[in-house]
């Protein structure tokens, strides 16, 4: 099971980044091997526009099946909804806690965008 988590830092104990398109990093966690890699999202962090959809494309290209972030806008959601990956919203905590919550079945898949674009 491969999971992408929007993160403010590059470690498993880094805090979740509540933004999707303009998250600083994504932690790509491989549940099978219990390893993770870091995806730098700085290009979209500073994008003039379209950060959400570009981030969605990049995250999906890593082949993840689950995505955990704080909030997701309509354009990013549209891209994600065309893939098989499932989206989960979790506002606070660390990357590790988010992974544990997902594995423990505590997170429910979102079936819609929960904020307008440019919500922050």
């Amino acid at each position: 099971m491969k999971i992408a988590i929007s993160s403010k830092g590059k470690e498993l104990d880094s805090l979740l980044d509540s933004r999707f398109g303009r998250a600083r990093y994504f932690i790509i966690y491989d549940g099978k091997a219990d390893t993770f890699s870091v995806m730098d999202n700085s290009m979209n962090f500073d994008a003039a526009q379209g950060a959400g959809i570009q981030t969605a494309q990049n995250v999906l290209s890593t082949g993840v099946e689950h995505i955990i972030t704080g909030h997701c806008g309509p354009k990013a959601y549209k891209v994600l909804s065309l893939s098989a990956a499932k989206l989960y919203l979790k506002e606070n905590g660390t990357v590790k806690e988010a992974i544990d919550d997902l594995i423990g079945g505590k997170l429910k898949a979102a079936n819609n965008a929960d904020v307008e674009g440019h919500w922050m």
Partner: peptide, 18 residues
């Protein structure tokens, strides 16, 4: 460069507003 197109396995998706 305006992030108006994403390429997905199903093909390109265009956001005309961008």
């Amino acid at each position: 460069r305006y992030n108006a197109i994403v390429s997905l396995p199903s093909g390109p998706l265009i956001f005309p507003e961008l």
